Amino acid sequence: MKINDQAREELWTQVGDLTDEDINRKPSDNEWSIKQVLEHLYLMESGVIKTIQAQLTSGEQKDVADKPIELTVNRSTKVQAPEFATPTEESATLEELKAKLNATHSTLREFAESTSDAQLEEKSYPHPVFGEMNLKQWIPFIGYHELRHIDQIKEVKQKLGL
């Protein structure tokens, strides 16, 4: 959870002084607003937690080598957001999004602390870029994924003059 906690701290630093109007503005029609990035992070974290939990109970055992998930932060490789994690066009407040992100982060922490590494290492789930990943790696992947989108938030802020 170390990378997850570091990423979340950095996320709050990047968005802490923004207004609801700021986060809902898009730099262009084909780019996400900061609100959409935050919503994507909440949807992704929530979806990955549900997937890990489901695989843990019903997935088959597989021995899968660790993947270089730290490469997730490299934004030169474009990845289409999965349907379950695609944000809406609807407006939201920063407080609403913070509450959702805090809730999913707490759920992830509780899950990580109550599940052994051995349990997580014996089952896996495919990632669209890295292929089959053991469930243990999915937890820090969420943190690296968040770091990737923090860079996106910085770009959006710059484009919006924030």
Rank of each mutant, 00 (worst) to 15 (best):
T104W: 01
S91A: 13
A92I: 05
E95D: 13
K100V: 08
E96G: 04
L108V: 08
T93M: 07
T107P: 01
K98M: 04
K100I: 06
N102V: 11
L101H: 11
A112Y: 02
T93H: 06
A103C: 00
F111K: 04
L97Q: 12
N102F: 02
L101E: 03
E89P: 05
A99G: 04
K98I: 10
T107I: 05
T88L: 07
T93N: 07
T88N: 02
A103N: 13
L108N: 03
E113R: 01
T115G: 00
T93V: 03
S91R: 01
A118G: 07
H105Q: 09
T107A: 09
T88S: 15
T93S: 10
E90Q: 15
E89S: 14
T93Y: 04
D117Y: 03
K98T: 09
S114Q: 08
K98E: 12
A99Y: 07
T93P: 04
K100A: 13
A99R: 11
S114A: 14
T115S: 08
E96V: 11
T115M: 04
S114D: 11
E95T: 15
A92S: 14
A112G: 02
E95V: 11
D117C: 00
A99N: 09
L94G: 05
E89I: 09
E96S: 14
S116K: 07
A112T: 05
A118C: 02
A92Q: 13
E110S: 11
T115L: 04
A118M: 03
S91Q: 10
T107H: 05
H105K: 13
R109K: 15
S114V: 00
S91G: 01
N102C: 02
L101C: 08
